[in-house]
Design a binder for these strands. Structure first.
Lengths: 358, 358
DNA sequence: ATGAAAGCGCTAACAT
DNA sequence: ATGTTAGCGCTTTCAT
């Protein structure tokens, strides 16, 4: 294979290798001759052999808990693209939210000599152990002693609740996520913090205004049913994920409640679907593209031996859509609210631009 | 590494290798001794080196048009699992529905010495070319001269339309998919075939009862708007994918039409979401698990040199849920009553249980 | 049943 | 600037 190219071009093995690798020490005419031979023979260097010899695969391993989760799916897509821009490929492992499966994948990827590991740890994972000295960057879920890139979940929750308060809502309930996930903890913390700061009375913060659910539709559906059965009933719901929020929309519909006339709902993530459910979902967008670029960049810098800060936060931004409207309790008095046209949708800019300290 | 194991166990390199590979010609006591050394040293064989030498990676490449598409996401998950059961891993490539990107991935995977290639060809791909002699199995979308595993899309469409006819519908419109995709062609064919067989008058089959759209929410939303603007208005919609169907649900909602009271909708694929939108979507389920297992099995058999039939069909099954109900025209003879309630949704059980011939 | 030795296809250190 | 040579870490003949 490579020998044939060398023979055809009348040069040695080494020179062909140098051409393949863009080594600048080859004379232009030779380079051309070799390239011609490569093209003519349709030669493609064997990446396995290259990896073995050069000890680098130009490949990152990516392990996520569930491809089927739209947020992770988008993350995969985005990471794949960012990696490509840096000349890397990605091997995906689907951990099925199981630390055991996750570990198996991580080992497999390490054995495959990946140049680095991107991991969204599954629920229950305490630490990532890698035999060989592969650099690891966590995404979206932090773990002690690891580099991590994640969205400002607390700030995002704050944006969401502030938005609802601005619409006149006071009885704002929360569907919180699993508390063994930092994401969920942070979002809940942002909710509580904003509620108490806003002067909402202490009673509103009783645990009865929060229900816990997993990050999926159905368990959030149940949580929403429980919350909406409360008396007095909440006028707004802050869900910790879009999937939860969509479950909540479904619960409201089943109870005969109109959104946003009877109830406002805000989600988190801005998955593609959130703009397509009925009513369209107001939500907090995670900047997946930034998340990806920073993660890849971090991994590359770590490989180079540069030191990178262990925690990197990516700002979120509100996407205001139809599922949130003025509080029914507040007839006119409170702040001007929008007119709810039938079927028309306006997308506002983020109302709190630059309102957060860095 | 492996030398250390050999030394510690007091055997040769070859023997350690034999133990790793489960070669039965090693004496039990030696095997035990070697295994102990392996465990003690935490030795993990380098997969790159193994691949290079043995010319097999125990890895399949998988190239799909878009991870973000819930159907493909589920396929990825399912294939990954099936592959695992056979001792294989999967490297994913996201082609972004572009033949160019797809080709790049396929080459990359071939250069990586994958043992086989699973491809869902992107729109526009005419054929899959692989330099090395890697076996290719297509999934879900056929291409001439290639092995393919796919659902019985035509049969599924037939099931769907038959279901609607059984509910009394006659003005059944169709949102067809892109006609450069066999899936879409087949589903549309199943629709037309069933319509004409059922004695629906020829006029109903005029092209005006079909609108074309991509397999996504928004373009299907537009198509549904166009169809529902027709006079007379269709009483039922057969969409070529769940995403399309959900777009149609949204269009119906925006037009003030209740589903299924004013309009029945049936989708295709049974993505997880279809059971969670409001109203729940009646749909045709693709047996993704079977699809995956057969695809992996085919690839393995092809590798062994066994001959496998070029086309393998997997049966579909109806999932009857709330979005399809009896035709409003039929209920009370003619009098078209119907109350356009404000945003209320009632969730009925399937009203036609057992009322249909097999 | 086990050991010795020859590579898999390439890259990189060393010559020239 | 180019050729030569020695491996990367394993598997797999071929001996024994």
């Amino acid at each position: 294979m490579i020998r044939e190219v060398a023979r055809l071009a009348g040069v040695s093995l080494g020179t062909v290798s140098r051409v393949i690798n863009g080594n600048p020490t080859v004379a232009p005419d030779i380079r051309q001759r070799v390239q011609a031979a490569i093209d003519k023979l349709g030669f493609r260097p064997n990446r396995v052999a290259r990896s073995l010899r050069s000890q680098q695969s130009h490949t990152f391993g990516l392990v996520i808990p569930d491809v089927t989760n739209p947020f992770f799916a988008e993350l995969v897509k985005s990471l794949d693209q960012s990696a490509g821009e840096f000349g890397y490929n990605i091997i995906l492992g689907n951990a099925e939210e199981s630390p055991t499966v996750e570990k198996r994948y991580i080992q497999m990827l390490a054995d495959r000599q990946v140049d680095g590991l991107l991991v969204v740890p599954s629920v229950g994972t305490r630490t990532i152990k890698v035999d060989r000295d592969v650099k690891v960057v966590l995404i979206d879920r932090a773990l002690p002693k690891h580099h991590v890139v994640l969205s400002d979940h607390r700030g995002g929750a704050k944006q969401a609740v502030t938005h609802l308060i601005g619409l006149g809502h006071r009885r704002i309930a929360c569907i919180a996520g699993p508390q063994n996930l930092t994401v969920a903890v942070e979002r809940w913390a942002g909710y509580r913090e904003t509620m108490s700061r806003s002067g909402a009375s202490a009673t509103l913060l009783k645990s009865s205004w929060t229900e816990f659910a997993n990050f999926d539709y159905s368990s959030a559906y149940d949580a929403a049913r429980r919350l909406l059965a409360r008396n007095p009933r909440p006028t707004a719901l802050f869900a910790s994920s879009d999937q939860q929020a969509i479950g909540a929309l479904r619960a409201a519909a089943d109870l005969g409640l109109s959104v946003p006339q009877d109830l406002s709902v805000v989600g988190f993530d801005d998955i593609p679907l959130s703009d397509l459910v009925s009513p369209r979902l107001t939500t907090v967008r995670q900047a997946v593209t930034d998340l990806s670029r920073v993660a890849i960049d971090t991994l590359i810098r770590l490989r180079k031996g540069e030191s990178v800060s262990a925690l990197q936060r990516i700002a979120t931004e509100m996407r205001i859509r139809d599922s949130s409207g003025p509080c029914p309790d507040v007839g006119q008095p409170r702040a001007p609210r929008r007119r709810l046209g039938g079927g028309q949708h306006r997308v506002n800019d983020s109302p709190s631009k630059g309102a957060r300290p860095k």
